[in-house]
């Protein structure tokens, strides 16, 4: 048995039933971009599909599938403790953990404070088509809302079926179908004041910052400030009050969209979320107040 790193980060992948967790995990598994020595723990292999040429050992019936670069995909069948203990005998540097559809990220994170491991980030899948309705469901409304509030990063699925859907919350988010979605999830570092993880040195890293602003700005100035952002800022998203009314900002790379806010009610949260490649803080970006 080789020595494993003393603390293995766990990225939780949560979201309600049907939010697209399995689809996204299949995308991760088949992307060919999993950093070496990654373990992907799924609840069951029911809908997991890995391209045959990527499988190095095992099959669905073995509960463990070996992939390239020392990566594995394991079925945990509701026993996380057993799965985490079993992983200690292999060389694993990071874990991606599929949560059950009824898990709350906060509680699930606590389970990941297991000796030898720590919770690194909570990624929550949100289904653009059904999320709003689910939030009003008498049985799971509270749960589905809590899942989103407790996320570090939102991955939005099925947005092509409901392109106008917006989450009324200031959280970094990425579309599940976006080209860089897998990269962002795998390279996720969270806020720049958190300790940097040791994994994924070869892969791009992504940091996030949230800028909150309740006051009204001049629209012209806002655009100037956005244009001045360095290339390391990968994505910007949010709502800002301007002299021309509230606008929605969406910027991917250098491609920026500014749309007037149509709804009568004001968004609950005004501000911008930045996702960038470097751990620059807001002051360096020129966004400190």
């Amino acid at each position: 048995m080789m020595q494993m790193s003393p603390q293995t980060p766990i990225t939780l992948i949560g979201g309600y039933l049907g939010a697209g967790k399995t689809t996204f995990i299949n995308k991760l598994l088949n992307s060919g971009r999993l950093p070496s020595r990654t373990a992907v723990l799924v609840n069951d292999f029911g809908d997991i599909n890995v391209d045959e040429h990527l499988i190095r050992s095992g099959s669905k019936s073995d509960q463990v599938i070996g992939l390239a670069n020392g990566c594995v995909c394991c079925s945990i069948a509701d026993d996380l403790t057993a799965a985490l203990e079993a992983l200690k005998s292999s060389v694993i540097e990071r874990v991606l953990l599929e949560c059950s559809g009824v898990a709350e990220p906060q509680k699930a994170r606590l389970q990941c404070h297991y000796p030898g491991y720590y919770p690194h980030a909570s990624v929550v899948l949100v289904d653009a088509l059904n999320h709003a309705q689910r939030c009003t469901d008498k049985y799971v409304g509270a749960l589905v809302s809590a899942q989103v509030k407790q996320a570090d990063l939102i991955v939005m699925s099925k947005s092509s079926a409901n392109p106008d859907f917006q989450l009324n919350i200031l959280l970094p988010s990425v579309d599940a179908d976006a080209e860089d979605a897998v990269e962002i999830v795998l390279g996720w570092q969270g806020t720049n004041d958190s300790a940097e993880t040791g994994f994924g040195d070869r892969a791009p890293k992504f940091f996030t910052e949230t800028w909150r602003c309740q006051e009204s700005l001049s629209a012209e100035k806002l655009i100037q400030r956005l244009d001045a952002l360095p290339a390391s800022v990968h994505r910007v998203k949010g709502f800002v009050a301007t002299n021309a009314g509230i606008v929605e900002i969406q910027r991917v790379g250098t491609d920026m969209q500014i749309t007037p806010w149509q709804s009568l009610s004001r968004p609950d949260h005004l501000g911008l979320v930045f996702i960038s490649h470097t751990a620059e803080n807001l002051a360096l970006l020129g966004w400190a107040d």
């Binding site: 603390q7 996380l80 403790t81 606590l110 389970q111 990941c112 404070h113 297991y114 000796p115 720590y118």
Partner: peptide
């Protein structure tokens, strides 16, 4: 490590620490 649901000083194991 700190943050786990184990308080080694108190010999206390709960939630995630209980599984361990």
């Amino acid at each position: 490590k700190p943050g786990m649901q184990i308080d080694i000083e108190r010999g206390w194991f709960f939630e995630g620490g209980l599984g361990y």
